[in-house]
Write a protein that binds this DNA or RNA. Structure first.
Length: 214
DNA sequence: AACTCGGGGCA
DNA sequence: TGCCCAGAGTT
């Protein structure tokens, strides 16, 4: 069963949406600022953790200025239950101050500016650019990278090349959801060490099925 | 390239 | 219980 990358994407869209929970896009799109903060907090954390924390956090401080005015201890208390809470509390406070003082409280719309913010790397920047500003960029983490290569959507060890390959074949409105679903798929099924091919809904189109590759 | 941060999820 | 990270920053 040979399929073009675009045909595979269409198949993924149909199948993965029924296997994994839907992304909480209504929260993510409340404002670019809240998306940015939630994405910073999301590193090495779960959706559930982030949803719980951000609900409280954004009730206390819905925008950059109000977050910048909170005491550091108050912010730490709000994010204490998440991993790397000390770093993240410090980072989101610094980010809110920088945005307030240098960007009139708004989120910059270039990757160069975003990556200068503490706690924001390439992946987080791309999430914001794609989800909040609808720019044609693809967020790629270790899961998306690994799964994409196994599926034959790309053949590279370089994240930048995976980004380029994916953005070329994924319909723009589905980029953010694609990232969400492939991340979950990589986490729970297409695992790094023991991929669960027997229960994988993509096995029929996946050239790596049955191969215990890396 | 290797190491750190560090609570949670999962086997 | 123990292992492995939904990254980013530092060395």
């Amino acid at each position: 069963m040979k399929q073009t990358p675009k045909e595979k994407i269409k198949f993924l869209k149909e199948v993965l949406g029924t296997r994994y929970p839907e992304p909480r896009s209504e929260l993510l799109f409340e404002s670019p600022f809240q998306l940015l903060i939630a994405t910073i907090l999301a590193a090495q954390a779960t959706d559930r953790q982030v949803n719980i924390i951000t609900r409280e956090l954004f009730r206390a401080a819905p925008d950059a200025k109000s977050l910048s005015l909170l005491e550091p201890e108050s912010i730490l208390k709000l994010v204490r239950s998440i991993n790397y809470c000390n770093n993240k509390a410090k980072n989101i406070r610094s980010v809110s101050i920088i945005l307030t003082e240098q960007y009139a409280g708004k989120v910059p719309e270039t990757r160069e500016e975003l990556e200068k913010l503490p706690g924001v790397g390439r992946k987080t920047a791309n999430v914001v650019l794609a989800a909040a500003f609808h720019q044609p960029v693809m967020p790629v983490d270790t899961h998306v990278h690994r799964v994409s290569n196994r599926l034959g959507l790309c053949h590279t060890s370089k994240v930048e090349e995976t980004e380029a390959a994916l953005i070329a074949i994924i319909p723009e409105p589905w980029v953010v959801d694609f990232h969400h679903y492939l991340l979950l798929h990589g986490r729970y099924t297409c695992k790094a060490k023991k991929p669960d091919c027997p229960t994988c809904p993509l096995a029929t189109i996946c050239p790596s099925t049955g191969k215990t590759t890396s």
